[in-house]
Design a protein around this nucleic acid. Structure first.
Lengths: 340, 340
DNA sequence: ATGATTTATTTAACCGGTTAAACGCGCGAG
DNA sequence: CTCGCGCGTTTAACCGGTTAAATAAATCAT
């Protein structure tokens, strides 16, 4: 009652293992229709399922793609602190499955041990989401497998890149506030890393202000963490310290949602007293009250695109490195009020 | 510049492959400290990383655990429609990693192809979250690997089970409403399956009503889907049709959040005009406005517990089947108002 | 001193596939 | 009639480990 192997199939069909293997992989070998049928029948009868692990031993391809996401808090149990990750991973998994790959998600602390995972499991490709220390990318360069970086701002042409024009995103969000006649606009973000997503958005924020003749005030910039709590605390601080602003541009929906909560806790309401604009457009953002006005990224598109690139790169070693810029747009809901 | 294999290590250390293998696996074999050191040194120098795929060929253990989640919408790209899944998976991944396992998440449509995944990848164990058709469990019984069912209500003693007392959960939520002096209490849930989670909670809802002398009214029971939209639509319907209730007991936070949105859209506010209680306590639930009063499940505990069971079951084939009942409690926030 | 044990290590078969090379065969060309 | 060739299939080595069994050396009991 044991599980059938390729050998069993071969014996039952009265052919050699090689023939079965060729048929299994639709290899480019001449096979009689008759033999093919015999073998297919045997597979059917034995309910044969190939052992991918064994196959990968010689074929050197595991049909698995690694997905790396940053571990903000080392040792944290929460892999998906930010729904952005779960949404993008949903999409990656879906499209990977369509082309016969499985994904292996790494909640690994970012260190050599991730490279280890690639070796251990013989991963065929990697998708890394987010910003990492340069050293991390150096390690990846050594292993020569197709790698897609999403939102990384790594300039190395050794990798495929998918990102958005973050500067423009920051600009658009700020501009939107200004169009609603806000002039005292804060900027709430995670910590800015050199050449990171957040820094770019911050530049866009500054450009929009400048363009409209609004002086930049560093007291209105809040560099915290990318989580609900940071949003709450900042909003509370704004109210408590009576910081003079009416609009808040944020770099993540979780920050915006937190800020709304913080204002509310201090007895202030959104958008009546404070306007808030998010970034990402998480699924939840349309369902909170008030609905969050935000910069909608095509999160699912990013996942799909990553797999599309890998599909080509996996079959053609010389597939040129891609640098994809995704589209985004403002979605208007209720968290920003038009002044006057 | 190729990657080192066990054979390379053996040669460099001047011992046989077997010795290296024994050392690698901390096998219960007598090995001189001297040899061990030599081998460790060689591994170090060659930066040896074992190939788990090759190992699993003979050892029959892949060090991978499959995680199945229900695909509500067939063909849906969204694997984590409900954050409940991403939260529990975070926890599973974290604890699995601690004991040296990786997880393989299946967004597979639930059919024979999942069983196929188990075979293909030689999975060592499976964790299935949610309710499935009986036929699905029958398939799992055939493959003899440790299986933990979370929230399944499958009575088969062939599996380990982790769940909560859903009847009591429904009861507590309803009772809570009643204690706040609500008497017209609706029940908003996903579709009830025979012996499913929702049915049990519904029974608890009825028991609480009965116990307090409140007549059960099937017009106040809304069996929809477990998603934001269903929540919104139901709330809108309640207002539009002027259905007479002041409190809404829901079976999921996403439903509750949707309902709050729906009420708001119809110009009604929570908790002033309608009180809503959720179920799960997702991370977001504490951060929306108003904060969601809900039945807090120990989501992370469920994940941890699943891995704890598997750890034991994997090392002891005769480890008895567990049936764990997790704890839960009401967390009070702002979505329920005390009447009068 | 001898046989029995124990300790440390090696041998070699095996896991379930893949794949380069070899093989037998029928057929058309010379 | 023989040679060369393409077709369909098989042979056998190999991938990178594991592990039962064998072996060699050291320790012990008698």
């Amino acid at each position: 009652m044991k599980r059938a192997t390729l050998k069993d199939v071969a014996e039952r069909a009265g052919v050699s293992k090689a023939t079965v293997s060729y048929i299994l992989n639709n290899a480019d070998k001449p096979i009689t229709e008759e033999t093919r049928l015999k073998v297919k029948k045997a597979m059917e009868e034995l309910q044969y399922v190939p052992n991918l692990g064994a196959a990968s031993l010689t074929s050197k391809t595991s049909k698995m793609i690694g997905v790396v996401i940053p571990q903000t808090e080392p040792g944290s149990q929460l892999m998906f602190q930010n729904s952005f990750y779960s949404e993008i991973i949903s999409s990656i998994e879906y499209h990977a499955r369509k082309i016969g790959y499985h994904i292996l998600i790494s909640g690994t602390e970012v260190d050599e041990s991730y490279i280890k995972l690639i070796y251990e499991r013989n991963l065929d490709a990697v998708i890394a989401i987010g910003v990492y220390p340069d050293e991390f990318f150096q390690q990846f360069k050594k292993i020569d497998i197709p790698t897609v970086l999403i939102d990384s701002y790594c300039k190395d042409e050794h990798f495929h890149n998918i990102r958005i024009d973050d500067e423009l995103g920051g600009y658009m969000a700020t501009k939107y506030m200004i169009e609603k006649h806000h002039t005292k606009i804060g900027f709430l973000s995670g910590v800015m890393k050199e050449d990171g997503v957040i820094k770019k958005r911050h530049e866009g924020y500054k450009r929009a202000l400048e363009e409209c003749g609004i002086p930049y005030d560093s007291n209105l910039v809040f560099e915290v963490g990318v989580d609900f709590t940071s949003g709450i605390e900042t909003a509370e601080k704004i109210v408590k310290e009576n910081i003079d602003l009416t609009g808040l541009v944020t770099t993540a929906d979780v920050l915006a949602i937190g800020a709304i909560k913080g204002f509310y806790r201090m007895g202030k309401s959104v958008p009546e007293e404070y306007s808030v604009i998010g970034f990402d457009d998480l699924e939840i953002s349309g369902y909170i009250t008030p609905g969050l006005t935000t910069i909608k990224q095509d999160i699912h598109g990013k996942g799909r695109c990553a797999i599309e690139i890998l599909e080509k790169a996996l079959e053609d070693k010389n597939y040129p490195k891609q640098d994809i810029m995704m589209h985004f747009e403002v979605v208007e809901r209720e968290s920003v009020r038009e002044l006057r």
